[in-house]
């Protein structure tokens, strides 16, 4: 059974087929968030701080940290953000940048075993990112595209993922430390995007035995009622073998989709987490005495 183990200084999170779906909070990312970008560029981390705490409270198992601000000192800002977030919350982090110097800056200040987001299948990227993963004993998100682009054929993307896993092995990085992002396309533009994503996820799980992750909202680009679509997609993807997603834990519909998938896939024993989260609060408040007794007994 493949287990991707990531950690902070004090907490370990395991991503795996027999584990609850791993929710990686996406909010600390200035892309498309004008105010956050301006703040971070000016050295003001108050929103980063608030986003970190709110996401963990909302149930994120990990947090993604991205500092991709145009024309700013990304390595320095990313390292600062990581230090700050690690001082506030104890969940493991995903260090997110497409700039190698920023990844290294983030890794050098990170305490624990990080997830690095990401490496693509292009030779020149693999050759610079994989040695970093090895050096800092991190895990890595591998995006299944290469020099030739993003193939619409899931079987071509499978081959790209397989090549990245083999490359990682050449650097001494085990397959368990490679989390593949199958690159889900907007279904509004490509009608078969869902079907081919599920096919690819299933192959990645069954043939390559790797964990997988994805952005949760790309699928619904350009369509209305995105939360419902995202939630259903996440649950179906989990059913096909997806084990984590980079998503907004503050969105209740998406979180419900993920939690429901845990129940239906048998990784929420006795539905305990589902019950704890969704029990009707009115039922608890009807008898204060009984309620407190029950709470003592229920320790999950």
């Amino acid at each position: 059974m493949t287990h991707t183990v990531v950690s902070s200084r004090s907490r370990e999170v395991v991503i795996g087929f027999d584990r609850p779906f791993c929710v990686i909070g996406e909010r600390i990312n200035p892309t498309g968030r004008k105010r956050l970008a301006a703040e971070m560029a000016a050295g003001d981390y108050s929103s980063v701080q608030a986003d970190a705490i709110a996401q963990v409270e909302a149930g994120a198992h990990m947090l993604d940290v991205n500092a991709g601000i145009p024309l700013a000192d990304e390595p320095a800002i990313l390292a600062e953000s990581i230090k700050l977030v690690q001082s506030l919350v104890d969940v493991p982090l995903s260090i997110d940048s497409s700039i190698v110097e920023a990844l290294e800056a983030g890794l050098s200040v990170y305490q624990g075993k990080a997830l690095v987001n990401s490496v693509t299948g292009e030779e020149e990227r693999l050759e610079v990112v994989l040695p970093l993963i090895k050096k800092y004993d991190a895990a890595v998100v591998a995006i299944s595209n290469d020099e030739t682009g993003i193939s619409e054929d899931p079987d071509v993307r499978f081959e790209v993922a397989k090549r990245i896993v083999q490359h990682a092995a050449d650097y001494g990085i085990p397959a368990a430390d490679v989390v593949v992002d199958p690159l889900v396309m907007p279904v509004g533009a490509l009608g078969q995007a869902g079907v081919s994503a599920f096919r690819l996820i299933r192959r990645l799980r069954e043939e390559l035995g790797v964990n997988t992750t994805c952005g949760a909202s790309n699928i619904s680009f350009g369509l209305p009622n995105r939360h419902a679509l995202n939630a259903t997609y996440l649950a179906m993807a989990a059913g096909a073998g997806m084990t984590s997603a980079i998503m907004n834990p503050l969105h209740p519909e998406e979180m419900a989709g993920v939690k429901a998938a845990d129940v239906l896939l048998g990784v929420d024993p006795n539905c305990a987490r589902w019950l704890r989260r969704y029990r009707d609060p009115a039922a608890q408040s009807s008898d204060a005495d009984r309620n407190s007794r029950e709470r003592r007994r229920r320790r999950v």
Binding site: P186, G188, A189, G222, L223, P224
Partner: peptide, 10 residues
């Protein structure tokens, strides 16, 4: 204005 969506525009 969010009345039509991507598949329709395509």
């Amino acid at each position: 204005d969010g009345i039509l969506f991507v598949p329709e525009v395509l």
